[in-house]
Amino acid sequence: MDFGRICLSDIDWEDRCFEIRSFGHNARLHASLDRLGIIDPPWILRRGGKYIVVDGFKRLAWAREKGDRDAGCLLFPANVSPSEIWERRIERKLFEGDLNPAEKARTAAILLELYNGEEAPGAFLIALGIPNRKGLLEKWARLSRRPEILELLGSGEIADRAAVEVSGWEPESAMKVLGLLKLLRCSASIQVEIVERIDEISIRENRPRLDLLNDPKIQEIVSDKNKNSRVKTQVLRDLFSRMRFPRLVERERKFMRDVKSLALPRSIRIVPPPAFEGNGWKMELHFSGPAGLRDALAEAVGLAGKSLLDRIFDPDLEERS
């Protein structure tokens, strides 16, 4: 690329095809420009009788606002292909350090276009911080077409992963769930869990996501003034679990009821296998010292005679008895 001074009035400011928008105000850059001017020359391409900006939109806009007539730029040779320009543009962007979500999303979209169905080089994905999982780059790319979500991401209250998951949702439900996540202020993994649950419940129940999100049970929790965001999160997670895994949750509740009616001594705890799968039931005895152990054992033996014990293991017994 050749260095030269480009007249700012020769730039086609409308053509922003190489822009990777950050959706954020870069105060640090402006402070630096105000102090030292443009240190790193923007990249420019000649197209028709005009120049278009490849890299350095903010720097050149700053110069124009300041009233400069021209700026030192690096000019791409005339015969360079768009894919070559993009490759350099992305490489440079990645070297600049952490990209914000909007930049990541746009870069993902460009990579997809650039590699046209082929797998994008792993080094790019690593630099972007996008795990090399099938379909993930596509989801990020979809996000680039959702400015309303990107704006919300800019607030820092929504986790990238949750936003990526809803990037393919219809706009109203995407914004509704993101609004809910903003209100709950929960961790990234819980945000993703909530998004996945809503998605899967709506598919299972053949119910539009928006309809589900407007469900009175959910709305009641959301608008409850007596619950703080932590409690709301927990109550909502329980509700979504019940909706997504109704049989399992019902069995867990039955187990709790059965254990309660068995009136187990405090020294004994019965632990079912995870998700009741397999035969690995456990009984825990809590004691301190030999006398305590003897007592606990005697109580455990006493349990054996109780017919109520059978209920715990039988999913149907409660109803039959």
Partner: peptide
């Protein structure tokens, strides 16, 4: 989207009931 849990062999399977 069934009610799957992780089985003892690491595979997803319907909840036992």
């Amino acid at each position: 989207y069934g009610e799957f849990i992780r089985g003892l062999d690491g595979k997803m399977r319907y909840f036992r009931d």
